[in-house]
Design a protein around this nucleic acid. Structure first.
Lengths: 238, 238
DNA sequence: GCATACTACGTACGGTGTACGTGCTGTCTA
DNA sequence: TAGACAGCACGTACACCGTACGTAGTATGC
């Protein structure tokens, strides 16, 4: 409420000239938080645990981060820094966007808490801006309005997130045998009611199939569609 | 690490024959929780507040719901029940899917906490199944593999969620004047560094524009693309 | 009649984010 | 150079959270 200091964390300097040198850093705190989230999930991240893993007092963290929410911003931007992007577009926009998406998926596979979090917190830290910059560089020759390009960027990012989240859910569900069992039981019951004929048919058809298409290939196929939409000339759509 | 015992809530009967009649119901509890989430956000939902709003003791809720996590399932399925779907497909799949998406967007606009939540919790309650059933009925004449259809359903749902979440973020950001101000300041600074030339150009081009395209039209346009992909014959893509 | 299974709910425990105060340290200003 | 002062480290404390557990009451099946 009382906003003497800027709310936006990127606007406040990491360190001012006065006072003793800090014993830690935003980057170190974010890194510790990321390690915790990777190991225990986002819900397992607490200020006390982060402080303990850094050997700091809990309340010391508040000298670096105004609140836990802003810590999430730091975490997300740190992950955005893991994208390994070429310095300049290659000249093949489709390949560049695919590579961008692949980098994103890889990062989100390492940090399965990212997709759900990034959806609720639009990130605009330095590393995220670097990603946006790359996207816009790739799209430089594409004559669409500026804000449309930003929407397309959001669309690409969301698609990557969706896929990563879907994978994470699969993994989580597949892990619990009992849950899988219960799910089958329940869907069987639902099908037996006769209220869901199409669903029952689909369920029956789906069972016993072997495919399990290579996840990477599935991702490439899905994202290729999205990239196609993004790169399509603006007015070719009815 | 708690021993994961998912205990699918849809499998346990709401009420058994023995014992006194319950004073409340899952539906009433879910409804109270939804009202709370609408008013204060998902983080504002607590067992104590729900109980208070129902005039019940906090711990009584645990006679209806094994844990708070399962309550989220109830909430999501209750919202899925708000979709107003025709009994049968109209014969125009494109129109049907657009209508489906529009219903979804409307529900998510009423309950802005849904998109983020549903992404992390695949819903399979009775109402959610009804939605899937409708989708499959629309897709009945479309000869794609069963599991592909389910993937496409997930894709459609995700797209709706993405759009709704994006809108919610816009609304939230636009609400805080100071935040908006700080964002502009920060982006200005970032642009001034010269590290983000394309971003700076895009930002400059975006400022001063008037469009603010009607959100519904924007949604229709976006979702129409997705519907196009969904309805496209399976092998028309390179 | 009576065991049984369920409802209702108070109490309590271990966890959370963080406001506040206290002492310290380094730098900038007069 | 003296002192004001901003930033740092951290302990304590508070309000709130999810929920395990125990107790008491009540309707049903045998």
């Amino acid at each position: 409420m009382t906003t003497d200091r800027p709310e936006l964390i990127w606007l406040r300097p990491e360190r001012s000239a006065r006072g003793p040198a800090p014993a830690h850093s935003r980057a170190a705190i974010a890194s510790a938080a990321i390690a915790l989230a990777d190991a225990e999930g986002l819900a397992g991240v607490s200020m006390r645990k982060i402080a303990a893993s850094l050997g700091a007092g809990t309340m010391s963290l508040y000298n670096y981060v105004p609140a836990k929410e802003q810590l999430f911003d730091l975490m997300l931007d740190a992950v955005a820094g893991e994208w390994k992007l070429p310095d300049a577009p290659s000249g093949d926009p489709r390949a560049d966007l695919l590579e961008f998406a692949t980098q994103g998926l890889a990062a989100m596979r390492r940090h399965s808490w990212v997709p759900a979090l990034v959806l609720t917190r639009p990130t605009i830290g330095p590393n995220s801006l670097r990603c946006a910059e790359f996207f816009l560089a790739v799209m430089a020759d594409n004559d669409q309005p500026a804000d449309t390009k930003m929407e397309l960027f959001a669309m690409l990012n969301s698609s990557i997130c969706m896929f990563a989240q879907w994978e994470a859910n699969q993994r989580q569900s597949g892990g619990g045998e009992q849950w899988q069992q219960e799910l089958v039981t329940y869907l069987g019951q639902a099908a037996a009611t006769g209220e869901y004929p199409h669903l029952a048919a689909t369920f029956a058809a789906g069972t016993g199939r072997t495919p399990d298409l290579d996840p990477d290939a599935l991702f490439a196929r899905s994202i290729d569609r999205v990239v196609g939409i993004i790169l399509a000339p603006p007015n070719n759509h009815a």
